[in-house]
Design a protein around this nucleic acid. Structure first.
Lengths: 231, 231
DNA sequence: CTACAGTCTACTGTTAACAATCCGAGGAAC
DNA sequence: GTTCCTCGGATTGTTAACAGTAGACTGTAG
């Protein structure tokens, strides 16, 4: 045992490798809409524009497939995943199952240090002037809050399942336009309520709270989707 | 629309590529114990013994990492994942959440054709003489039954989450030695009961049935693990 | 005009060589 | 003896060239 037993002084910061940068670049291009939904991802093109060889590109595409942002077919290449109303249904039913387990597990295992990041996000939310809150920023804070919850669950496999969904949820959050005036207010109320329940350690209440939270989010999304593309 | 609208004549059988074979080989080596838990997977060695270059090996290792059989660290290589009692806890709590959603979804969406594979497995189980049922065979039929359930849920993302767990569950099923005499009997009873409830389309009953099923499986596993490695 | 066969091109899958990193062995300083 | 440094071998990350496939394109027959 050479490492300090209490509060590791510094995490071994994991080395970044080309694949990581490539994956970040492509992910950002997809989320920002610079690469359209359904578009083909051609390895040579990406390799040239990112100034790397095809190896890291292929690895990054594989990773993004794991995240559900791209679809890869053998010998036919990768395309940016299209999202439909049925996809929203899949994503939110699975998300619900995962978040229920996450908050249950977090109630049992989370330390105060685990909850601090969530607290911090709520503070940021309050302190930043509302006018400067872009859709993107709100969406990212939302994802970050839930990400912190999944981390607080101390459940590696659950976290990986969440990672496979996270970016897809972000896609949905980004395509909504014009939030209701009171959205920011209710967002803060809902999330600080979740955090409070987590501190109470009352599993049953926390689970039903997050359940309602996810269902409400799904309801809003459904409304938006049906409005955008009327049947 | 050029394709026949009813019962597609033949599925487009998806092309297999070297990476697929490599992943199968390594997975089999791990499950059969030929590569020990915790052992390093050295790309050059694997490449030489499988007569392919390192490219497909790397891709296969990433895939196996996704399945949870292998742990890969940047610049340090891959090792066969070790499983502990805590891992069992993670795997079975997550599995429970997934199976609940699966049977719920299957109750709503499964056709009789989706249930046929499950029926078939039950028949195989009955028809094969018990003496010839190896641990491996029993474990595989068990996994196959649940795999059919997840397919019947018609939920692509849920299925992928299940895929990330499936091999790890198989690892646990394979390390049990000497099943109770009545295990095969109760296995058949439990699973045909699940199938029956699925046909009833009663979501609430089906969910609580599979919940009990998974919890019982976890209980047996826990007992075994604690017995093997006494605290 | 439609259906079909052969060819051609753009792309992915695979390979082998090159570059960078980790980690332990061995020695120097104290 | 212990700690630190350096060096070298083993192993992974990256590259660029080669091989094979899918789908479009052309032309031809009916």
């Amino acid at each position: 045992m050479s490492k300090s037993p209490v509060t590791p002084p510094f995490e071994r910061r994991e080395r970044r490798v080309l694949t990581d940068d490539v994956a970040d670049s492509i992910r950002e291009a997809i989320l920002s809409g610079r690469i359209a939904s359904g578009a083909r991802l051609i390895e040579d093109e990406l390799a040239e524009s990112l100034k790397v060889s095809r190896g890291p590109i292929r690895a990054a595409i594989f990773r993004l497939q794991q995240e559900g942002l791209v679809i890869h077919e053998t010998h036919r290449g990768a395309t940016v995943a299209r999202v439909s109303v049925e996809d929203a249904d899949e994503i939110y039913t699975l998300r619900r199952a995962l978040e229920r387990l996450a908050i249950e597990s977090a109630c049992l295992k989370a330390t105060e240090a685990d909850l601090a990041p969530m607290e911090a996000i709520l503070l940021v939310f309050q302190s930043v002037p509302r006018a400067s809150m872009t859709r993107r920023r709100v969406a990212e804070l939302d994802i970050d809050f839930h990400d912190a919850l999944f981390r607080a669950a101390h459940h590696a496999r659950l976290y990986r399942a969440w990672e496979a969904l996270r970016s897809q949820i972000l896609v949905f959050l980004l395509l909504r336009d014009g939030l209701p005036d009171d959205y920011l207010t209710s967002w803060h109320r809902d999330h600080s309520s979740l955090l409070a329940q987590l501190r109470e350690r009352d599993v049953a209440k926390a689970v039903s709270a997050i359940d309602a939270h996810i269902q409400a989010a799904y309801g809003r999304l459904r409304e938006q989707l049906l409005q955008d593309s009327p049947a």
